[in-house]
Amino acid sequence: MELLGGIRHVEHAIQTPVWDPAWRPRVSRAVAQLRVAFAEHVDQTEGPGGLYAGVLGDAPRLARHLSGLVDDHETVRSALDELSGRLDHGEADALRWEAAQLIQAVWEHRQRGADLLYEAYETDLGGET
């Protein structure tokens, strides 16, 4: 599953009524899918020959921004782990809020990554003939 699909599954799952007996299992499955999708995203970006290595090779000026994206990975991974651990016993409204915050963090991470790619490959720094 791709990252966008994982985000959308969680969004859909948390929008269902919390009093529905299927709410927790549905959210739990969606968060598990997002965890898998996020792990794949991290592998594709940070892994050997991954996207970030290519960007660093092509645009070393963006190293600090890449480091921030790597930090995001750890933050999101920790939040996913924490939410997963609380889904069985946490208060549903609080879990819904946490999941929404997590989704927002992943959306923002995706946008920072897209901005970085634009900066690396679409911004003309001049000096070329």
Rank of each mutant, 00 (worst) to 15 (best):
His41Asn: 15
Ser28Leu: 00
Trp97Tyr: 11
Arg77Ile: 02
Arg24Ser: 01
Arg110Glu: 14
His73Leu: 02
Glu11Asn: 09
Tyr52Ile: 04
Gly57Gln: 09
Trp23Asn: 02
Pro48Gln: 14
Gln104Glu: 09
Gln15Trp: 02
Ala39Cys: 02
Glu122Met: 14
Ala99Asp: 00
Gly113Lys: 06
Ile103Asp: 08
Thr123Arg: 13
Leu34Phe: 09
Gly50Val: 04
Val55Asn: 14
Gln44Phe: 12
Gly127Pro: 01
Asp43Ser: 10
Asp20Ile: 03
Gly90Lys: 05
Asp93Thr: 06
Glu98Gly: 03
Pro48Ser: 15
Leu102Thr: 03
Glu82Arg: 05
Ala92Asp: 00
Glu122Pro: 11
Asp72Pro: 06
Leu95Ile: 07
Pro25Thr: 07
Glu91Pro: 03
Asp93Glu: 11
Glu46Phe: 01
Glu122His: 15
Leu66Ser: 06
Glu108Pro: 04
Glu108Leu: 13
Glu82Leu: 03
Ala32Gln: 10
Glu128His: 12
Tyr118Gly: 15
Leu3Gln: 13
Glu82Gly: 07
Leu87Ile: 06
Gly5Arg: 06
Thr75His: 10
Leu95Asn: 12
Ser28Pro: 00
Ala120Thr: 05
Pro17Gln: 04
Val42Pro: 01
Arg26Ala: 02
Met1Gln: 04
Trp107His: 13
Leu66Glu: 08
Leu51Trp: 12
Thr123Gln: 12
Gln33Glu: 15
Gln101Lys: 01
Val55Tyr: 15
Gly5Cys: 03
His89Cys: 03
Gln111Phe: 09
Val36His: 13
Ala37Phe: 09
Arg64Ser: 15
Ala100Pro: 00
Ala39Thr: 07
Leu51Gln: 15
Pro60Met: 07
Leu95Gln: 14
Ala53Phe: 11
Arg24Tyr: 03
Thr16Ala: 13
Ser28Val: 00
Asp71Gly: 11
Leu69Val: 11
Pro60Ile: 10
Leu87Val: 05
Ala105His: 07
Glu11Gln: 10
Ser28Arg: 02
Trp97Cys: 01
